[in-house]
Computed example of a mutant assay.
Amino acid sequence: MTMYAALLRGINVGGRKKVPMAELRGLIEGLGHDRVRTHLQSGQAVFTARDGDEESLAAELAAAVEEHFGFPVDVIVRDHAYLRAVADSCPFPAATLEARQLHVTYFSAPVDADRFASVDRAAHLPEEFRLGDRALYLYAPDGLGRSKLAELLARPRFTKGVIATTRNWNTVVRLVELTAGDE
């Protein structure tokens, strides 16, 4: 069986879209998945699945969350191999940075560099971003909350047609660990 991570976008933020983790675990188990665990309160769950692919598992979970909790939630599901590849491909020196300085935005589909061509990268230095496989790496030395580049990249013109959800480097690494299973 394959280990997956489900990334739920925008839950438990500012008292809106409340999804208790115990209920989320039960919901995923009710879909027939095993070894379900959640991480933090901000929308990460890991599980094993016998059937399905990332897209069908994401659609299944999004539908179940909406039916159970009464509001829509965007969901991205990624397997361990992908999560490991994203962590291993980080173009920034992750080992030398604080976790609050490095983030990954996961996309539901590939995005090309043309989408970001209008960004004046020099105007945002020392902040930087680089594209990966269905991911965007963001270096924000003063943290995400103070990042003008992160604010710009979150605008709809850059995320149009895809689900985008961002995690700090600690969570990126922890999801790799949690989905490692018995490797």
Rank of each mutant, 00 (worst) to 15 (best):
N12T: 06
V13R: 10
R16Y: 02
K18I: 06
V19D: 01
P20S: 11
M21V: 01
R25I: 07
L27P: 15
L27R: 14
G30Q: 10
D34H: 14
R35A: 08
Q44P: 07
T48M: 11
A49C: 10
R50M: 06
D51T: 03
D51M: 09
D51N: 03
S56Q: 03
S56P: 00
L61V: 05
A63S: 12
A64H: 01
V65R: 01
P72F: 00
H80L: 00
A81Q: 09
L83P: 00
R84G: 02
V86N: 00
D88L: 04
C90I: 00
A95F: 09
T96G: 08
L102I: 04
H103F: 09
V104I: 05
P110E: 00
V111G: 05
F116R: 06
S118N: 07
V119R: 14
A122Q: 14
A123Y: 13
H124Y: 11
L125A: 12
E128P: 13
E128W: 06
F129Y: 15
R130M: 13
G132I: 13
D133N: 13
R134Y: 08
R134A: 15
A135E: 00
L138E: 03
A140H: 05
G143Y: 07
L144S: 14
G145P: 03
K148I: 10
L152V: 13
P156G: 06
P156F: 09
I163K: 15
T166D: 04
N168R: 11
N170H: 06
T171G: 02
V173S: 08
L175P: 02
E177V: 08
G181P: 11
D182A: 00
D182W: 03
